[in-house]
Design a protein around this nucleic acid. Structure first.
Lengths: 236, 236
DNA sequence: TTTGCTCCTGCCGGAAAGTGTCAGCAGGGG
DNA sequence: CCCCTGCTGACACTTTCCGGCAGGAGCAAA
């Protein structure tokens, strides 16, 4: 159902972008024609969202029919903002976008504009330039595999530069300072391994779908042994 | 939109009727053909709802999904979790605590099992150990000053080790990789300055309270000189 | 006022999705 | 074997969605 999904993303975009925002901009973000954008706006309004549209200016999201009003203290807001700021340094594009949407949604539920000022409290968060090696594979596919629990076939170059093709059950990702790690159960070695995502040269979706029951057991097992440092244990 | 509405009602029906429920019954409730009912079930499942279907028995709603507007998507939860994980590396104790509180509150609003599973998606976020110099002053007071917009009297040791006492208007904090900075308007120099918080030797609350209006102007000014804004005024 | 920008609406035609009917397969329990 | 039920594919029909075009109206700056 593409339409409903697009309408949701349109709401997210309205929360995220600085207001007022023109219909042309929203149409571009939605990947839809200007005419259709106006229709989508009308649909949202019919659904209860209060979107103020002023000719010559743009749209302003007046009121949100959003989630249950969660009240956060100013300190909590600041913490969330700083966290998002940090996320923008270590996350990938998809995750950053999701974080911004989440933040915008949280802010939208706050009592009136005074909370929006909170967004300006944390000015910036620097970090030395990203030295992490580039990732060649599709992170979205990888994330999807972790979540929906289907196996992956990967071509992996280990730390000794030996290339192998394995089938793995992806369990979760670990974001380290200088590298992005993937915890998975390697069907080849029949053991849990950390893979450097940057060293995965190719990745295709496998047919196998490991079962939720099995996965929860695996996760508990992993949680029990998670004290070990992962950086040097991959490969071999 | 009729279809989306029907899907909502189907979820409601699933919650309402004693389980298991046969597809024929659901089709009758929805006022739709059996074939279409199966399609609708597939749509709900694709959207994230966990509906268990057993041949000869019927449907059982395992887990709710809180369709479009409410709550956060799985990706957004993952982003928030990673952000919090990053926050724990760069923030101070007060902020970390606040962040955990906020996260707990957000997670509490999520449909049960989904939240727990989501928290395990991001396994960990490492970072090299903190090398930032220690902060002598009360960060909470500093934060409060930024927020409530009252002036501060600080004893500052600059990079040339010269000690001076100044009155400042604190505007916001910047979290850098190796140091914590305070952006403020220095009443002594009458200019905007970055202070290293670790070099502030003493700090007391000043009497002055600069006005919100003035502050917003200052913030705009700061924002204007921080990032180059392309052509806001194109004169003819 | 004029100019420029923008929101907003109606209409048309092609494209896409939704829907019902029919058929068949799979799996569990008598 | 049977019946019950979930599940999927194929086909045709209907609905809606969507882009492009044209025009009207409101706001702001020149």
């Amino acid at each position: 159902m593409a339409r409903t999904d697009r309408l949701m993303r349109l709401m997210d975009t309205l929360r995220r972008l600085p207001q007022p925002v023109t219909a042309a901009r929203l149409a571009e973000e939605s990947g839809v024609s200007l005419r259709q954008l106006y229709r989508d706006i009308a649909t949202l309004r019919a659904g209860g969202a209060l979107i103020d549209g002023a000719a010559g200016v743009g749209y302003t999201l007046t009121e949100d029919k959003a989630l249950p009003p969660q009240s956060f203290s100013r300190l909590e807001i600041e913490a969330l903002m700083l966290a998002q700021s940090g996320l923008e340094q270590i996350g990938d594009a998809t995750l950053i976008e999701a974080g911004r949407n989440a933040m915008a949604r949280i802010v939208a539920t706050l009592p009136d504009g005074q909370a929006r000022q909170a967004m300006h409290t944390v000015l910036r968060s620097w970090r030395q330039k990203d030295v992490r090696p580039p990732v060649r594979v599709d992170l979205d596919l990888l994330r999807e595999a972790c979540w929906q629990e289907f196996s992956l076939s990967i071509t992996y170059r280990d730390l000794q530069d030996r290339v192998s093709t394995r089938e793995i059950w992806p369990l979760g990702m670990s974001y380290a300072e200088d590298t992005l790690l993937l915890l998975a159960h390697c069907r080849l070695r029949m053991d849990y391994r950390h893979f450097h995502v940057s060293r995965i040269e190719a990745m295709t979706r496998g047919p196998e779908s490991f079962r939720p029951k099995r996965v929860s057991l695996l996760r508990e097992y992993v949680a029990g042994r998670r004290q070990s440092r992962p950086g040097s244990s991959s490969g071999s």
